Simulated scan of single mutants.
Amino acid sequence: MLINKQEVHFRLIGEFNAYNLLAVYGTALCLKEDSEKTLTVLSGITGAEGRFDYIISKNQVIGIVDYAHTPDALENVLTTLIKLKKNFQQIITVVGCGGDRDKTKRPIMAQAACDLSNKAIFTSDNPRSENPMDILADMENGLTTAAKKKYVAIPDRRQAIEKAVKMANTGDIILVAGKGHEKYQEINGVKYPFDDKQVLREMFAKFE
């Protein structure tokens, strides 16, 4: 990335992070901070846990965990992946919608996942007091004919992630969206241990 004609490498990925870095850099200059020192500090920043948080398997499948749990956030992440990926890479999205929350966004998120991915897997997020099957039905409601050909529904989140890893070829990108840094899954008032990134690691190891 070029900033004031100086080439700088950052650890953060995505257009939205580029905007954030430029905003911080501009603010620092307004506060009379040294330009080179500011760029050095920014180049060492790592991403927040659960925000475009990625791991790579031994066979070069890229797994990304992101907190995106709204239509806009999901679209932004997937749009970024489309810009970054190479032609041979598929995007496989694992996504669910939270229970006891805005139901109107469910079909919108489902459609976005299908429109912007090669394959989509609908699954549970934090169903809370709702039946996961009812949430999935809401997600599926209103999908276009084309979208219906691109997804499968797997209520169990661990099994959904496992399916995504099985479907992936070398170099493909798996996005697991919705929970990010959370280390639990809330079902009927109980928070069960669940870590998307750890499950991805386990599945990568299982199928390597």
Rank of each mutant, 00 (worst) to 15 (best):
M1P: 01
L2K: 12
L2R: 08
N4G: 04
K5N: 14
E7P: 03
H9D: 10
I13F: 14
G14W: 14
A18T: 08
Y19G: 00
N20A: 10
V24E: 09
V24D: 09
Y25L: 02
A28E: 11
L29H: 07
C30H: 14
L31T: 01
E36F: 07
T38C: 06
T38F: 14
L39F: 07
L39I: 03
T40C: 02
V41R: 12
R51V: 04
F52V: 00
Y54H: 05
N59T: 12
D66H: 08
D66G: 01
D72K: 15
A73M: 10
N76K: 15
L78P: 02
T80Q: 13
K83H: 11
K85M: 04
Q89L: 03
V95Y: 12
G99P: 07
K103S: 08
I108S: 04
C114F: 13
C114Y: 13
I121Y: 11
S124F: 06
S124K: 02
N126L: 02
N126V: 04
D134I: 07
D138P: 00
D138S: 07
N141S: 13
N141D: 14
G142L: 07
T145N: 14
T145D: 15
A147C: 11
K148Y: 06
K150E: 12
K150V: 01
A153R: 11
D156E: 15
R157N: 08
V165L: 02
V165G: 01
N169V: 02
T170G: 00
I173E: 10
I173A: 03
I173V: 11
V176I: 13
E182D: 10
K183W: 04
K183A: 09
Q185K: 05
Q185E: 13
I187M: 05
N188Y: 14
V190A: 02
K191E: 10
K191A: 04
P193W: 13
D195W: 09
M203D: 04
A205M: 07
